[in-house]
Design a protein around this nucleic acid. Sequence first.
DNA 1: CGTATTCGCATACCAGTGGTATGTCAACGA
DNA 2: TCGTTGACATACCACTGGTATGCGAATACG
Lengths: 212, 212
Amino acid sequence: MAERREQRARRHDMAAGHPGVRARQREQTRARLLAESRRLFAARGYAAVGLAEIVESAEVTKGALYHHFGGKAELFRAVLEEVQREVGERVAAAAEQQSDPWEQLAAGCQAFLTATTEPDLQRIMLIDGPAVLGWNEWRAMDEAASARHLTEALAVLVEAEVIPAQPVAPLARLLSGAMNEAALWLASSTDPEDLAHTRAALDRMLRALRQG
Amino acid sequence: MAERREQRARRHDMAAGHPGVRARQREQTRARLLAESRRLFAARGYAAVGLAEIVESAEVTKGALYHHFGGKAELFRAVLEEVQREVGERVAAAAEQQSDPWEQLAAGCQAFLTATTEPDLQRIMLIDGPAVLGWNEWRAMDEAASARHLTEALAVLVEAEVIPAQPVAPLARLLSGAMNEAALWLASSTDPEDLAHTRAALDRMLRALRQG
DNA sequence: CGTATTCGCATACCAGTGGTATGTCAACGA
DNA sequence: TCGTTGACATACCACTGGTATGCGAATACG
């Protein structure tokens, strides 16, 4: 119908380059779906956002969505991957600015706390992530994106005997969980001093690791 | 139809006492809905369980469910309240067996870790809870049921100068998050030694609080 | 250059879901 | 005894994620 011609026309207008109009259009559609669903999921949560609203915001149809993603959950997974990659990069960047392994750990943890305190990331990364994909899968993605840095940093410090010899996996999980929950708490906190207090408490927890 | 008479008959059969047949039947229906939905939510998660399955397992109808609860989310909230109350009681019981405030904290934390390592509690308490009700509401319920014990224990220790003076709220959140995530990790762990390692690491974290 | 093919969607449709409005019968109060 | 009410049961609805199919422009091919 007229509706269809309208959609087709719009798509045709926007990409006039010769080499790979198809590929370019494809990437753009995918990017718009990712961006809009990320925005909506972050704002109102996975369950409260319908596919209809997503495709409307992205100005495509459900057909496009299901052409690019396996379904609602897979779309969410793609969004989560993107978010976690960003956070992981921020953590890694902060750590790399330090040369001393111990300072790398401290800086990385503080950077993680800063990043995950942003409400838009929280709902996707910390709330809906485990519920939608299941904890095991969420954990695997988290490990691949950012918790890996934590585990590695701890392993280096144990190797260098800065931290007493002990399995690093449980330690990494304890610390990761502590930071996750603290970030969620901070986001709903009213007292602006809570951030400083939490940073201080986290720092004390980390420094305590050096003494057996 | 016949179906209806069947349901009515069953209900009539089971409660023959004179005083308050109504009230008793009411409680029983409510209890069955709670028990079955808890079982199903724990096994497969909130989103994967439909009301149809719940009422079928409980041998009632959706009418009964909506008579007792405001909807699916409120039913879940009631289940979560029950679960958290049980965990809170276990934590409190473990703490009360110790007389020394410090030992109370340690025992309470270890009991919490033991309790929340049970997979059936995890999905409801730690995964679906925040996602279904929102983190703020989940947090309020958690605080009322068990995190309160943690906050109080820390406050006592700060007051007694066993722990350096500092705000207890951030500390409680860090520790609570650490235990939550550790419990989730343990549930999906294969190495049986992980439990002991995690307990040891948690204990070290707690003991480290005593040194500034 | 024509044209067959494939790719990237758009449309139409469906089964199942949470939620609601209404009906109904047994227990209770008077 | 009898009207009232409480505790459901039934029937129905709007909507949601998911699927099957259709179609037209870009590309591969002779």
